[in-house]
Amino acid sequence: MKKTYFPVLSIAGSDPSSGAGIQADLITIAALGGYACTAITAITVQNTLGVSGIYPVPAQAVREQVEAILTDIKPLAIKIGMLHRFEIVKEVVDILSQFPKVPIVLDPVFLSSSGHPLLDEEGIQLMIEQLFPLVTVLTPNLTEASWLLGKEIKEKDQMPEAAKELLKFGAKSVLLKGGHLEEEVLSDCLVKSSGEIFFLDHKKVNSNNTHGTGCTLSSAIAVNLAQGFSVEYAVERATEYVVKSIEGGKDYQLGGGNGPLKHI
């Protein structure tokens, strides 16, 4: 009997410094026992100091990359990061809607941590209206959630209700990330469409090396789903992995700015 992999498709932009984007997804998925496939949406110019340029891949080329993987390798889960342009969002929605049984983890990337726009306004609107309803786990941080809901979310007590409101956009579950909370114990809040609420608490790790944390978390959730874990356990296991990766990388120096996690 032939052995099988746990293939995961990452649809995202590249990062030449490997801290975030496709490169971080590849490392994360491999570290957690999956087989990583990719569809590159844009080539970014960035390093530990931030993003200085973005060169989008043609939307048709993105579609063909996704189709090539879905129709042959047949991934068991999909992670979506930066899509960058309306045309790319449109193609991704169209092709993924034809594969409704594959779980999708969406990191709704609108801005880089340094404030660089990563998706145009038309693309954001289309993502909300047509991509969110296809998603198994939506993973916004507090800044993204505040933007989506039109109100500031900055306290732990606000998170369950905010996550419930985000569910109304159509995703099956929402993991609202609390990494920006100003507390020693950080909390993420997972809310499922069934109404179940789970808090994942973890001690804050003081580190400047947090570049790509969102990419890493969403990829880790996707590979856990590919391996057949429930949403709750996939999120719990991914969160533990990210915390350990931040802890493992906090004493390293790479570049002059915000360095990467220690993924392995």
Rank of each mutant, 00 (worst) to 15 (best):
K3R: 15
S10V: 12
D15T: 09
P16T: 00
S17P: 00
G19R: 06
L26F: 13
I27W: 04
T28L: 07
A31H: 08
A31C: 13
G33W: 06
G34W: 02
G34S: 01
T38D: 02
A39R: 03
I40T: 05
T41S: 12
A42D: 01
T44W: 10
T44R: 11
G50P: 03
S52T: 15
S52H: 12
S52Y: 13
I54A: 08
P56L: 04
Q60L: 13
A61K: 07
E64S: 11
A68F: 07
I69F: 07
A77L: 03
I78L: 08
K79I: 02
I80H: 03
V92R: 07
D94P: 01
D94T: 14
L96E: 04
S97T: 14
P100Q: 12
P100W: 15
K101H: 14
K101Y: 12
V102G: 04
P103E: 08
I104G: 10
I104N: 05
P108G: 01
P108H: 01
P108M: 00
V109A: 10
L111I: 14
L111Q: 14
S114F: 09
G115R: 05
G115A: 02
G115H: 05
P117I: 11
L119A: 10
E121Q: 15
E122S: 12
Q125M: 09
E129K: 14
Q130M: 11
L131W: 08
P133Q: 08
L138Q: 05
T139H: 05
P140V: 12
T143L: 14
A145L: 06
A145I: 07
S146N: 04
S146I: 00
S146R: 02
W147T: 10
L148P: 02
E152F: 03
I153M: 05
P160H: 10
P160S: 08
A163G: 06
G170N: 13
K172S: 15
L175H: 12
K177A: 06
K177W: 06
G178M: 01
G179A: 04
H180M: 04
S187C: 14
D188K: 03
D188E: 05
C189R: 00
K192A: 14
S194C: 04
I197T: 15
V205Q: 12
N208A: 14
N209E: 08
L217H: 01
A222T: 08
V223H: 06
N224V: 06
A226I: 01
Q227G: 08
Q227A: 03
S230L: 10
V231P: 00
V235D: 00
V235R: 02
R237K: 15
A238S: 07
E240I: 10
Y241Q: 11
Y252V: 09
Q253W: 04
G257K: 05
N258Q: 14
P260M: 04
P260R: 07
